[in-house]
Design a protein around this nucleic acid. Structure first.
Lengths: 146, 146
DNA sequence: CCTAATATCTACAGTAACTGTAGGAGCAAG
DNA sequence: CTTGCTCCTACAGTTACTGTAGATATTAGG
């Protein structure tokens, strides 16, 4: 236990693809726990820190806010209680996810169409700019993300 | 042709679904031009401002940065030149769009599965948390080992 | 062992893209 | 004319980082 393998913050950063400052920032805002320190005051991380950080990074990557991640983490830390709260969180997020997918798919279509038609052409033929200028040309339904 | 068709910033905000402060912010950073003012120093907007603001808002909504929008706007203002630059911008964005759609689709699957399985259950059965904790459980096409 | 390079430490400033607030002035209605 | 809304400027706060400065710690080389 005392001679358990501990690694530096740099190791954790390389391990998770997260920047060193970001790790310290997560610790500062209480999203990552304070790790033990070495004699020279360096943070000493084990594999469990990498797991938690991967959880956070993956969630961020998929569009969850730090606040939502904080909630998910607290739920994940008490796996015996009902997951009604997690379910509600997930349902709320699902609506946003669906909306984003729809709008991104519409944009994807236009971006691809442009790449075919636009090569060497003029901007007046670029559908992308028309699509971006005129909301009604968009294929998706109107949805406001706050 | 700018004689009697001028409206307040509030009108423009309602017209475009953009907050008043955000409009003033866009003016401040040079994304929206300075409109004429009334005797009482109020900004006076016409329809062309709504068009430009809709372009900006829609682009933002679809994930373009203000920097990219600034470029697109300058390109849109010179529609006679080649759109190679706009094409390059669009292609770059397309890669990101595709990546986001893939990851969001994977999350959507898990969120939906959770909503079915999770009702009244325990968190330990929630796949969402597992998916978010472990990248390799993600359904997306690329399997990454962390 | 000493030194130079690198990594880490704290603390704080800056970024993007807004959002909110304070305090004052304009204007339309009752 | 006063109430109440909108607008004005200016600036502080937010989220989620990212970068910088100056000091200390560790490590690789001579």
């Amino acid at each position: 236990m005392t001679d358990r393998k501990d690694f530096t913050i740099g190791w954790l950063a390389r391990r998770t693809g997260c920047k060193v400052q970001t790790i310290r920032y997560y610790e500062q805002i209480g999203l990552m726990p304070e790790p033990p320190r070495s004699d020279g005051n360096r943070r000493l991380y084990g594999a469990e820190f990498a797991d938690r950080l991967n959880f956070i990074r993956h969630s961020r990557d998929l569009g969850f806010s730090l606040g939502a991640i904080r909630e998910l983490l607290s739920l994940a830390e008490n796996p015996d209680q009902s997951c009604a709260a997690a379910d509600k969180l997930a349902r709320t997020h699902l609506q946003d996810v669906n909306s984003r997918i729809a709008r991104l798919s519409a944009l994807k279509t236009e971006l691809e169409r442009m790449s075919q038609q636009c090569s060497g052409g003029k901007i007046s033929e670029c559908l992308v700019i028309e699509v971006l200028a005129d909301h009604s040309k968009c294929v998706s339904d109107e949805h406001q993300t706050a």
